[in-house]
Design a protein around this nucleic acid. Structure first.
Lengths: 137, 137
DNA sequence: CTTAGACCTGTGTCTAAGACACAGGTCAAG
DNA sequence: CTTGACCTGTGTCTTAGACACAGGTCTAAG
């Protein structure tokens, strides 16, 4: 199997496959013509990687998980611990985005009814420089 | 004013100031000793940049805004149009994070009551490989 | 057999927004 | 003058791939 075939068969891109290969997550054999040749084992390996990415694991996490399992150990405890970390991070980012979204949409609606002003020596744009979020009552 | 002084006075880092300087958003004079020397104008300029970043504008956006204002034009229309774009992006990311968060927390709770398993030839971790999100009723 | 064109490949570079490392410069105290 | 503390500019690193590109491969036509 060539790079593009593998990629298409699992709905991803050749670049992604190459990237995982570069990191050593996939270990294709060398074909006679120098092309990388992926076996069925690589297919299920890639399937695993894509599932894990989809669940929020980083590529580094996945590398760690694979290493553990290649030592014959159960990766389950590691997997549980990693997802706990990632979930916390996601929660933080989620809250940050929530706040940002509120700020932005508040700014947008304020600005729609404010006039344009030309810049001055110490003011680039009064919309931004005078914006203060209205506190919730 | 030296880099670190400027940074501290506005609650940011010297690296950030250097970064904006590298991009040409700040234009310090050269001090005799080769150090960059920031004036009061730079202070308000940096204040503007930080406000804009805080509102979700990218550094590239800010560069564009500043360029507009340095041409003497009002940047307000550009600012309104840019924030609309950024807000849409933020909304998309927000929804993505919402979904991811749900998936992750669902996985975590499922996995807490599942047993560990050793890896097999075609399975790295059954927790991940067998995970399927429970559809909402 | 040869050639043209389409498609594929591996490698190297680029992205955002700074953080970090590091060799060397500056400055005040002794 | 020297020591040490702090500061500086420059260059490299980060994520997870996307993109560019020179060149190789393969199929069909001549």
């Amino acid at each position: 199997m060539k790079v593009a075939e593998l990629a298409k068969s699992l709905g991803t891109t050749a670049d992604t496959v190459r990237y995982y290969t570069r990191l050593g997550l996939l270990k294709p054999a060398k074909s006679v013509n120098g092309y990388k040749s992926y076996s069925n084992k690589e297919v299920s390996r890639l399937k695993f990687i894509l599932s894990a990415r989809n669940l929020g694991f980083s590529v580094a996490d996945i590398k760690e998980i694979i290493n553990e399992s290649e030592d014959g150990k159960s990766a389950c405890p590691l997997v549980r611990s990693l997802i706990k970390e990632r979930l916390e991070e996601t929660e933080k980012q989620f809250q940050a985005m929530l706040a940002l979204r509120g700020k932005m949409s508040s700014a947008l609606s304020q600005w729609e009814e404010m006039e344009d002003k030309a810049p001055t020596a110490n003011m680039v744009c009064h919309l931004i420089e005078n914006f203060e979020q209205i506190k919730k009552a």
